[in-house]
Amino acid sequence: MSRVKSEDERQYLENVFDKLGFTKENGQLLADTLVDADLRGISSHGIQRLDWYRRMIKDGTIVPTREPKVVRELPGTVLVDANQNMGQIAANLAMDKVIEKAKKVGVGIGVVKNSNHFGIAGYYARKALRAGLVGIALTNTRPLVLPTNATQAFLGSNAFAFGFPASPHPFMFDGATSTVASGKIQLADKKGEKLPGQWVVNKDRQLVNDPREAEDILARAAFSDTQIGGGLLTLGGTDVENSNYKGMGNSIVVELLTGILAQGSISADTVRGKHDFSQFVFAFDPSFFGDPDKLKADATAMLNRIRNLKHVPGKTIWVPGDREYKNLANNQKQGVNIDDKTYEEISQIGQELGVNVPAKI
Rank of each mutant, 00 (worst) to 15 (best):
R10H: 09
D18P: 00
T23E: 11
A37M: 04
D38Y: 07
S44A: 15
I47D: 02
M56Y: 06
G60R: 11
T61E: 01
D81F: 13
N83I: 03
A91K: 07
A94E: 06
M95S: 04
V98A: 08
E100D: 15
K103L: 10
K113W: 09
A128L: 10
R130Q: 15
G132M: 12
G132D: 10
L133D: 10
I136Y: 07
P143I: 10
L144Y: 13
L144Q: 03
L146R: 00
A150G: 11
N158H: 05
F160T: 08
A166K: 03
A166C: 07
P170Q: 08
F173A: 14
D174V: 12
T177I: 05
T177M: 01
S178E: 06
G183D: 02
E193G: 02
K194L: 15
Q198S: 09
Q198K: 13
V200G: 03
R205K: 13
L207Y: 06
E213P: 03
A214L: 12
L218Y: 12
A219C: 11
A221L: 12
A222W: 11
T226W: 02
I228A: 04
T234S: 10
G236Y: 03
G237I: 07
T238G: 06
A262M: 13
I266H: 06
A268L: 08
D276T: 03
P286T: 05
P286G: 12
D291Q: 13
L295Q: 14
A297R: 06
A297Y: 00
D298H: 11
R305P: 00
R305A: 14
P313Q: 03
G314S: 04
I317Y: 08
P320K: 07
G321Y: 06
L328N: 14
Q348R: 14
G350S: 05
A359E: 07
K360P: 00
